[in-house]
């Protein structure tokens, strides 16, 4: 067996199982952060499109900041400042104990905030792509606001937003690698620990790259499937 292969063996002798476990952590963090990001994005889009004075500006500040500041700096700010912020907020509500924000929470919240900004833009664009005439027609048919939202807006926004959200997903998945700096044992951190202990960094970073390739390729398939599903019944020229 070549040396690099034995390094990646399963079990106690090699690092194969550790790397795959790291990949599962990566996937978990990415899924949760992406889902939260979509929720933030829906809220962000609503804020940006709202007619309440001041609100759209607030939304603009959020997306401009996140898109203009390196993700690494955002993560560090949440990492160094998040715990203190949470504690002071808790104190306002009379809770005096110590709150510790662990690496997982730090990572997930940082990535959600980042992917939320991109999702905001995608969802806002998708809402604006729904023809105004349809909304007027729905109103003319006597649909309530809720029915209009559920039957007219959501299905179409979902369809228009899917390709963009696919990009946001890819971005979030790749951004999970940055979370290794706060000590979460995902693919990157695992590759580092293994390189440090075996002095074979090339082997482990190539393995990391292969794992990311696998994750992105698989999720691409999922998103393509979702796009086809969302576009069922849409007539093509």
């Amino acid at each position: 067996m070549p040396e690099w292969l034995s390094l990646l063996a399963w079990g106690d002798t090699g690092w194969g199982d550790e790397m795959v476990r790291g990949a599962l952590v990566t996937l978990q963090v990415a899924v949760v952060a992406f889902a939260l990001g979509v929720v933030i994005g829906a809220g962000g889009a609503a804020v940006k499109l709202s007619r309440v004075p001041g609100l759209p500006l607030l939304g603009d500040v959020y997306t401009t900041l996140i898109r203009g500041i390196p993700d690494l700096i955002t993560i560090y700010i949440i990492f160094f400042g998040g715990g203190q912020l949470a504690m002071s907020v808790a104190r306002l509500f009379g809770h005096t104990g110590y709150i510790e924000i662990d690496a997982l929470t730090t990572g997930v919240s940082a990535l959600s905030v980042i992917s939320g900004a991109y999702s905001t833009e995608v969802i806002r664009g998708a809402v604006m792509a729904v023809p105004k005439g349809q909304i007027e027609a729905a109103k003319a048919c006597g649909m309530s606001r809720w029915t209009l939202f559920r039957r007219i807006l959501v299905p179409q926004v979902a369809r228009y937003a899917l390709p963009g959200l696919g990009n946001v997903w890819q971005l979030t998945l790749k951004d999970t690698s940055l979370i290794s700096v706060v000590g979460l044992t995902e693919i990157m951190r695992q590759a580092f620990v293994a390189s440090g202990s075996t002095k074979q960094p090339f082997t482990f970073f190539v393995s990391a790259a292969v794992l990311y390739l696998a994750l992105t390729s698989l999720s691409n398939k999922v998103f393509n499937g979702a796009e086809i599903w969302a576009n069922r019944g849409v007539r093509r020229a």
């Binding site: 890819q170 790749k174 999970t176 690698s177 940055l178 970073f205 790259a209 390729s217």
Partner: peptide, 22 residues
């Protein structure tokens, strides 16, 4: 496909720490 599907951080580490192995 390769460069868009893997994180830039991996690419940087591969080029920096990875090359030190040889």
């Amino acid at each position: 496909y390769f460069f868009r599907s893997t994180p830039l951080l991996v690419q940087i580490f591969l080029i920096y720490y990875g090359t030190g192995q040889f």
